[in-house]
Simulated scan of single mutants.
Amino acid sequence: MLIIGVAGTTLSDEEKAWLRAPNVSGVILFARNTGSRDEVIALVDAIREAGGEDMLVCVDQEGGRVQRLREGFTRLPPLSTLGLAYDRDPAEAVRLAEEHAWVMASELRATGIDFSFAPVLDLARGSAAIGNRAFHADPAVVGELGQAYVRGMHLAGMAAVLKHFPGHGSVAADTHLAAATDPRSRSELDMADMAPFIEAIEAHAEAVMVAHVTYPAVDHRPAGFSPVWIESILRAELGFRGAVIGDDISMKAAEVHGSVADRVHAHLDAGCDLVLACFPDVVSEAIAAVADRPADTASPIAGLRATIGATWEGLEDNPQRDRFVARVTALESA
């Protein structure tokens, strides 16, 4: 039920014990957990040695300012560069989106990491939290590039995680720092922010991360705590059958639901399959909160486990990768 954060580049005895807790499904890595590529690989191996081979390992590797793994990895441009490329040549931008995704995903797979929380499908409409993490302001463009990005991840053997449903890009506030509210009607959301998610779900994305934004015209609760958004809209109306992931319970906008334990239960009661406890200072309380909660044997989280990926030696001996890296990294100078 939980994906947790750990403090550094090695595991403490307490963190190893966390990974043995029955309701801990995986670990999310941050810059604090990364050094050289070999150190990252060693940490991933240590996580699975402590928690078992089925332990999920994930990261935010979007490109631009949200790229946790850097040393020894391709410096990926932000997704906004693909939107700019689309304005010049749509067909070429779609190819580049697939290639950007494949480079990102194949490098993570060669490191033993299961998935990145990608792609971002929020619209580029003024959000402080999103900025150049978004492809474009036009929902149709975001939908087309999002589908291409999902295809590229799948080609590398990686599941896609769409974020931040039903759309954070039109909300100025940053949910890391403050509560965020979007007053628009359901019909306005359908025509704009939700449209790219619908298209990417049709491309068989395996998971959706739900935003901490509140949409009072639909429900008084933030979307990640809302059975209306998760069960009634995402699952029943849109037919999504993959994993639903709540955003980090440490974020300021999550505090509306009280204690750490209250936040964890609110996510799970709303229909989330996984809850993110990204910072070590909340992990013990989150684990205690779910200690007696029965696991859902029908949970779709198994679909997040990656297929076998290439080794780094195989990647470095792949001329296709060289071409893709050259084309993708040239986006920022275009």
Rank of each mutant, 00 (worst) to 15 (best):
R125N: 08
T311L: 11
E144R: 15
A291R: 15
G246A: 15
E71G: 07
P183L: 11
S187W: 15
L304E: 09
A172L: 12
R235S: 08
I28K: 03
V150I: 03
R32N: 11
H265G: 02
E49N: 07
V290Y: 05
S127W: 05
V208D: 08
T111P: 07
A253F: 00
G246K: 10
M153Y: 04
A330R: 06
E15H: 03
L234M: 01
P294I: 07
A134C: 08
G246L: 12
H164M: 11
A118G: 11
A105R: 01
L238T: 02
L69M: 15
I47H: 04
R70C: 12
L304G: 09
I47P: 10
A277C: 10
W18T: 00
A173P: 08
E199F: 12
V171P: 01
L268V: 05
S25N: 14
D193C: 06
R68I: 01
R184N: 06
D193F: 07
S259W: 06
F197C: 03
D273C: 08
R305T: 13
D45V: 13
P183R: 11
E144L: 09
F225W: 08
H212Y: 04
G167L: 03
S106D: 00
D262Q: 10
V57E: 02
A326Y: 00
A261D: 12
S333Y: 13
H267P: 01
S116I: 00
L96M: 03
A137K: 09
G242K: 01
D322C: 13
L29N: 05
D174K: 00
V275I: 11
G5I: 04
R241C: 12
V59L: 03
P216A: 05
A148R: 06
V66G: 02
M104T: 12
A195Y: 13
R293A: 01
S106A: 12
A298T: 14
Y149A: 15
M104H: 08
I301M: 12
G224N: 01
L162V: 10
S259K: 11
A91E: 13
D38H: 04
L96S: 04
R70V: 14
F240H: 12
V103L: 04
R293F: 07
A330N: 07
P196Y: 09
V264Q: 11
S250M: 11
Y86C: 00
L155Q: 15
G143E: 05
E14R: 15
S333P: 00
D322Q: 15
D296R: 15
D219A: 15
D87S: 13
G112V: 11
A330K: 03
A211F: 09
T9K: 11
L238K: 05
F115H: 02
P77A: 03
C278E: 02
V228Y: 13
M209N: 12
R293D: 06
P222H: 07
F225V: 00
V256E: 14
H136A: 11
T214P: 04
A286L: 05
A223L: 09
E53A: 14
G309D: 02
A91W: 02
L2R: 07
L177H: 13
D122W: 05
E313S: 13
G64R: 09
D262M: 02
P77L: 04
V264T: 02
V6Y: 06
I249R: 02
F135I: 03
L43G: 01
G152D: 04
A50R: 05
H164K: 10
L79R: 09
T297L: 13
I233L: 15
P78Q: 08
H220A: 15
G35K: 04
T214S: 14
A306D: 10
A254K: 00
I308T: 14
F324P: 03
